[in-house]
Design a binder for these strands. Sequence first.
DNA 1: ATGGCGCGCGCAGCGCGA
Length: 260
Amino acid sequence: MKIASWNVNSLRVRLPQVLDWLATARPDVLAMQETKLVDEDFPEVDFEAAGYKAVYAGQKTYNGVAFASRLPARDVTIGIPDFDDPQRRVLAATYGDVRVINLYVPNGQSVDSDKYRYKLDWLDRLTGYLQHALEHYPHLVVLGDFNIAPEDRDVHDPDAWRGQVLFSEPEHAAFRRLLALGMCDTFRQFDQAEKSYSWWDYRMNAFRRNMGLRIDHVLASHALCKSCVASAIDTEPRRSERPSDHAPVVAEFNVRGVRD
DNA sequence: ATGGCGCGCGCAGCGCGA
């Protein structure tokens, strides 16, 4: 079972690239973030024509999360339970015997902003939700745009970024708390090239210079981690014309019940 | 020297992302 995460930065603009990538990479499940579409405008028919079912939770202009999958989703839920948040940032569904939770974690803007406070509060709420989810679903994948670079090796210039949003100690502590619930970062279960990142600023030729951050993650419960056979960042779509600023992250698990 | 780029909205230039 191949599960991927991709912040597409507007599905309206990126749809052709997403469909191309699905045809090439053939994931069983793709979790998308920043679709920036209301549900009425979601291009469900285009995914169906490509052999993928879609579920989505969008809003006008900002945020928005969605799944595309080869088999239909079961038990779809939107948002964090008992957390009244109009921002569409969380979508969960079950595929086979794997529960998948798709996240678009708030950016935070800067450490002295109200948005940073919202981010930390939001991560607290998420922690409670995931603790509950892990008790109910031994096979749990939590993936998406976390807007946190966990370690020095996930940042092109850690000394310049230290203490800044995406790389501050409170965010690191929140990320460690998520892992401590009983999950692994699948990417770090395997040997990886140095300077592996999932996001590069559009400005300053950052991608060409590989000035990036690894902020998109695929976490898995310990039971699933044991059956994880690969986890990698696919930088190919970032090279194309009008790319998203994020690259897809793909993890593969040896579990049955998902492919036809 | 806080811009730089890309997106949405909407028709000028701003808010936002990371």
